[in-house]
């Protein structure tokens, strides 16, 4: 047994080297961004890759004020919160219905939703843009909230349906016997029981909405979200890299914080529905 253990340990070390390199390649851009965000433009031009010697927070102040990040930040928060709230509400309701209720064409509806998961956003961009424009939702936060909801709803419904299918059907029946109507069953029983899946879904959808550039760029053309704002900091001929780096750090900070606080749940949520609970 000891010999096997040693051999296994050697293999672990061999596997650890490429993994460490991979981790380094992920961490380096973050270090690069933070390091350069603390440099002046002159400091950056003189030494692009070296560690900052004379740190300054001026770039953060400039990004927040001059580059209108404060305004973009509010847009991102409102749009993300609105879309995530709507997604959780709808996916929980639809997931409950698909998993627990019996109605005609239930399977067909579920298959159609799964089908929607397979369509890449890029394929439907033109009809999507025309629809948003036709509804008068262009350049409105509501338009972007609805767009995020539409695009991320199939996955959310799939996840919630899988979660609710793992719950015993007797809970629904017991609640019905206790006098609860379907909406009351959802509100009093299914919604509280769905909390772990909803939390995971909330985190994942927050990440998607916050980090999105493409949909936001199409819908909110005048009033930007943070990620579009960052993209706009790149000039055609020159780019103020320390300012851009400060913007990136500011935009990424809330989402990194969310990830650090809830990382266990994000990993756990990925396996929701994989096995019957």
């Amino acid at each position: 047994m000891a010999a096997v253990g040693k051999r296994e340990r050697r293999w672990l070390w061999i596997a650890a080297i490429p993994m460490a390199l991979l981790a380094l390649s992920c961490i380096y851009p973050i270090v690069f961004a933070i390091n350069n965000a603390l440099k002046t433009s002159k400091g950056y031009i003189l030494d692009r890759f070296g560690m900052v010697t004379d740190p300054t927070v001026q770039n953060f102040a400039d990004a927040w004020g001059r580059a209108r990040f404060s305004e973009y930040f509010v847009n991102s928060v409102l749009v993300t919160a609105g879309a995530v709230g709507l997604l959780l509400l709808l996916s929980s309701l639809v997931g409950f219905a698909l998993a627990m209720l019996r109605f005609p064409f239930r399977r067909l509806v579920f298959v159609a939703i799964l089908g929607a998961l397979m369509i890449p956003i890029q394929v439907v961009l033109v009809p999507f843009y025309r629809t948003v424009e036709g509804l008068g939702l262009l350049n409105t936060r509501v338009g972007l909230v609805l767009a995020y909801t539409a695009f991320f709803l199939p996955f959310s419904i799939y996840l919630m349906t899988a979660f609710y299918r793992g719950l015993p059907r007797e809970l629904l029946e017991a609640a019905r016997m206790d006098g609860a109507r379907f909406l009351e069953v959802w509100w009093h029983v299914m919604l509280p029981l769905g909390r772990p899946a909803l939390l995971t879904l909330g985190i994942l959808n927050t990440l998607y909405c916050w980090n999105d550039v493409l949909i936001s760029l199409l819908v909110l053309q005048d009033r930007r979200t943070l990620m579009v704002g960052i993209a706009a900091l790149r000039g055609e001929y020159t780019t103020n890299v320390p300012l851009l780096a400060a913007g990136i750090v500011l935009a990424a900070a809330p989402i990194v914080l969310v990830y650090l606080v809830f990382q266990r749940r994000i990993v756990g949520g990925i396996s929701v529905g994989a096995v019957k609970g």
Partner: peptide, 17 residues
């Protein structure tokens, strides 16, 4: 509807919330 029948049921799996 089940709740209009004046019956209460005890399930095999208990079905407690």
């Amino acid at each position: 509807e089940p709740y209009d029948r004046g019956v209460a049921m005890v399930f095999q799996s208990y079905a407690l919330y």
